[in-house]
Amino acid sequence: MIDWLTEPFALAFMQRALVAAVVVGLVCSVLGCYVVLRSMAFLGDALAHAVLPGIALAYLAGVDLLAGALVAALLVALGIGFLTRHGTVREDTAIGILFAAALSLGVLLISSTGSYATDLTHILFGDVLGVSTTDLWLTGGLAAAVLLAVALLYRELLLASFDPLLAHTLGRRPGLVLLALLVLLALTVVVSLQTVGVGLVTALLVTPGATASLLTQRLPTMMAVAAVVGVVSSVVGLYLSYYLDVASGAAIVLTATAFFVAAFFLAPHRGLVWRRLGDARPG
């Protein structure tokens, strides 16, 4: 049994993959709580796809792909903030426009490079087994920065999400806080690219948070439970990927989905089974 558990991580690339997957599982789940509470899933998805043109341009220019992704995600995050600032365009409309435009631009650029199919697969679904030591430092550094910001901005994010009116009354700037949240989301998406890719990062943002929301009643515990779900999903997903020889990003996401389904049916008080039993009991 011990051998079975340690065997995959005798390989250096698997060790790097484990660290990357755990870091990504952690940071996505924690920030994902705000994505769930503020109904920003679509926005997360849009940011993920928006990095495509950035990656393609970086590739064509021969600069670091992550840097390109980061710039593109930040531009789209700020662009959505700008379009919706005065209520001129509805938020989901603004997201839809920028999302599709960025994705198209990305596909256009990548198709012009000639290695369309293989490169696109890596970007869309991640390649955690190909993480280099440099990638690892970058991922760890960005993730630490995001988590630190979430801790320092805890009250600001809580106020801006739960009651922006009170935030104004207290002389805070909830609009700026939301912009900061968009930037954090952009950073998180970029951090997650290598592990789960553009296509699956939304799942890692939303699923652990949604699972935790079924099990907890306060934001700090929700974040803690989400973090556990995210990290455990990453580790279990990697094992599944190794022993079943399947794509690691997909295995991680489906493990998280399994946790969500279990919570949806079995969670105390809010699970479907619990509520059915409660209905069946008279009084």
Partner: peptide, 15 residues
């Protein structure tokens, strides 16, 4: 939203 009564009242002190 996952906040308790005490959490909400404490928000009054955030200023």
């Amino acid at each position: 939203f996952p906040v308790t009564v005490a959490d909400v009242v404490m928000m009054g002190r955030y200023g």
